[in-house]
Design a protein around this nucleic acid. Sequence first.
DNA 1: CAGTGGTCTAGACCACCGC
DNA 2: CGGTGGTCTAGACCACTGC
Lengths: 239, 239
Amino acid sequence: MPLYIQVKEALEEDIKTGQLRIGDKLPAEIILAKRFQVSRETVRSAIRLLEEEGKVHVRHGAGTFLVNPIPRTPSSLENLMSVTSMIKYAGLEDGERREKLRVEAPILEWSSLLEMDDGQEVIVHERVRTANGEPVAFSKNILPRQLVGEAIIEQGSIGSLFKYLKEQCNIDIYRATSEIVVPLHTDPHSQKLLIHPETTVLLLKQLHYDRKNQPVLYSFDYFRNDVFKFSINRAKIDG
Amino acid sequence: MPLYIQVKEALEEDIKTGQLRIGDKLPAEIILAKRFQVSRETVRSAIRLLEEEGKVHVRHGAGTFLVNPIPRTPSSLENLMSVTSMIKYAGLEDGERREKLRVEAPILEWSSLLEMDDGQEVIVHERVRTANGEPVAFSKNILPRQLVGEAIIEQGSIGSLFKYLKEQCNIDIYRATSEIVVPLHTDPHSQKLLIHPETTVLLLKQLHYDRKNQPVLYSFDYFRNDVFKFSINRAKIDG
DNA sequence: CAGTGGTCTAGACCACCGC
DNA sequence: CGGTGGTCTAGACCACTGC
């Protein structure tokens, strides 16, 4: 375990035991360095982590101050997770699915977003997710056929798409840009989920990227908003 | 200008001029340090910035690689901005508003979220935003009366609430947790905006914090989704 | 002005990757 | 195994804050 992690955890322990309280100024970096018998840069690495996690507020020339812990949002949208994970996270049993899988010629929007060459085909994968026998989400996934190979077409059930792509296709999704849309009532995919009068539906149009920021998957994910809760942490851009 | 910023910008210049191309491995840190006549730690600070901005991918033992630039999302929700700013950002003229301002006893949900003592009152501020004579957004803002003082009650028009709070009340909002909700058609606030058949409405329930993570403002912000576009960048949590 | 964090150095050793 | 990034040190000087 690196030293700066140990220092960070020691400081967190001071917070937890109440030795440091909200609003308190932490000892100067040089003092902490002496106390923990490490160099000042090591202390700074630890404090940088605490700052990233929103536990302290560093002010040049003034000191480092303990702030309220960031309010924890249960499952926050800026953390990318697969629909399968979101269902588990919501405490639901990932039930029976109706899957459809086909090969298509992409429409211009898809081939453009996925940066595909002309003439290439896409795999279109659709499925309804259920819990307690009721539909709770619907997903339409679009992938370049070239990326996923031929095996997927014979595949009966995919399971977690993220997991399948990682293990079978060596595609590691780790980022996405998502547009949040409230679909119209006339949207046929939305209608599949509108089974209760108090149900509303939210759509995420998501373009997923691998670690090289290559687009690999475009998806339309519809969620019942009476079942799933969506939240997000927002912060001012500068200082 | 700090050295590590200069190094970062020199590297970005190499990217822009095509000396470094997507997928390329950057020279080793120690080589870059020699080239720029700085220490290795300075180079590492520069690379850390590039990594945070998603421009390079650092792999322990392998090297640092140039990746596709992160797809730029126009106005992404994780960047906190006021409704006033969102309206300007959408290219709309912030038109006539119908403002209401009153003092109330808070309901339990509000006083709890705003961490208020019993018996304290809240200021409730509502307004409709219009553009081209049509309503495009509706906001309901709830603030502890104690925080904002008495002056606000006599105030005719507030303008940008964020700006008002900063300049008149010394409250600097810099973070929020927002829940994204698709309101029901029966929601009276939502109905104010449903003036076209192809209009849908999205609601942000937002709890705003100052730099000490003290909650200072709870707001319900309704937006017409045919006028405003909402997007978000999502990333996997761990490396 | 004293105290604080921000930057920077020139080394060192370790952990990991890919050949 | 050599090359790479990850961590760490013991200093130094600078820039900012608040009294």
